[in-house]
Design a protein around this nucleic acid. Structure first.
Length: 268
DNA sequence: CGCAGCGCCTGAAGGC
DNA sequence: TGCCTTCAGGCGCTGC
């Protein structure tokens, strides 16, 4: 559930807490998904970054601690070590006024923790598309990427290749605002331009609102975001479209719940 | 190499 | 009330 705006919100809140601190001890769930957490004991965190939905903590030994929150992951300063859903934890050196333990809590264990040499990534992180707020994410570039595949538009967006950080919520919102049907298999240049604008807009709005809180997501302070009050499409099937009043429809597209306006979001 | 299909997880919500 | 089923879904892996 945490997508780019939620991850960015967490990163911003964590940064003053963690930068400059040394990891003195650590523990993890035995699963290989979380066990790498303990490999960073003895290092000092120098920076926090984000790529798409991945959180990257730069370490003083040239490595990075990489955290993906999956569906239900949370990073919690001051976590309780007896929390049954705590999958990893790091004890940090003392700093007055600051909690000494950072916990990774993940009820459903869809998240993942890794350690890599600086910039030496594998998997999705290695093939991630451009950051949506960077200048190399352009309407023309998006069109070129989308043209290269015959998969459904929304499935392409969720692949992280055309642009990094879009998940189910913001994919529905972007397609809705761009007035493009999520199941088209090819987009026109005009549609790609609208999509580009819509993607930047919905993600920017999400960040500005501190993320979208639905069920599991909480930011690092345990506080809810506010963007759920600003969604036009996601989760609103059965409600009238804010543009034309037509009832929003829900469908399953490539195994993903998808909401769209059957009138506004044309296939061409 | 692209991509479809599947498995991973468990609490919440819905049905009866 | 309580049991059972369905649902949520990002990513890694496998194999065509």
């Amino acid at each position: 559930m945490p997508e780019l705006p939620e991850v960015e919100t967490i990163r911003r809140q964590l940064e003053p807490f963690i930068v400059g601190r040394t990891v003195t001890d650590s523990g993890s769930h035995p699963s290989a998904k979380f066990a790498p957490a303990v490999e960073v004991v003895g290092t000092t965190v120098e920076s926090t970054k984000r790529r798409g939905k991945f959180l990257l903590f730069g370490l003083d030994d040239g490595r990075e601690l990489i955290v993906h929150l999956g569906m239900t992951g949370q990073l919690i300063p001051g976590a309780e070590l007896d929390d049954p859903y705590l999958r990893a934890w790091w004890r940090l050196d003392e700093r007055s006024g600051s909690e000494s333990v950072l916990g990774y809590r993940d009820v459903r264990r869809f998240g993942r923790i890794r350690v890599a040499q600086n910039g030496d990534y594998e998997g999705t992180l290695a093939t991630l598309g451009p950051e949506p707020f960077d200048p190399d994410f352009t309407p023309l570039g998006l069109w070129e990427t989308l043209k290269g595949s015959r998969r459904h538009l929304k499935t392409q967006l969720l692949s992280q290749r055309p642009v990094a950080g879009v998940g189910n919520i913001y994919a529905d919102e972007a397609c809705f605002r761009a007035e493009v049907h999520p199941a088209v298999r090819r987009v026109t240049r005009a549609q790609a331009e609208r999509l580009h604008h819509a993607i930047v807009q919905v993600l920017r709005q999400g960040v500005d609102n501190g993320g979208t809180t639905l069920r599991d997501y909480r930011d690092a302070d345990g506080v809810s975001g506010e963007n759920q009050h600003h969604l036009d499409c996601y989760g609103r099937h059965g409600e009238p479209c804010v543009r034309c009043g037509t009832e929003l429809r829900k469908t399953i597209l490539d195994a993903r719940t998808t909401t769209f306006c059957p009138r506004c979001q044309s296939r061409r």
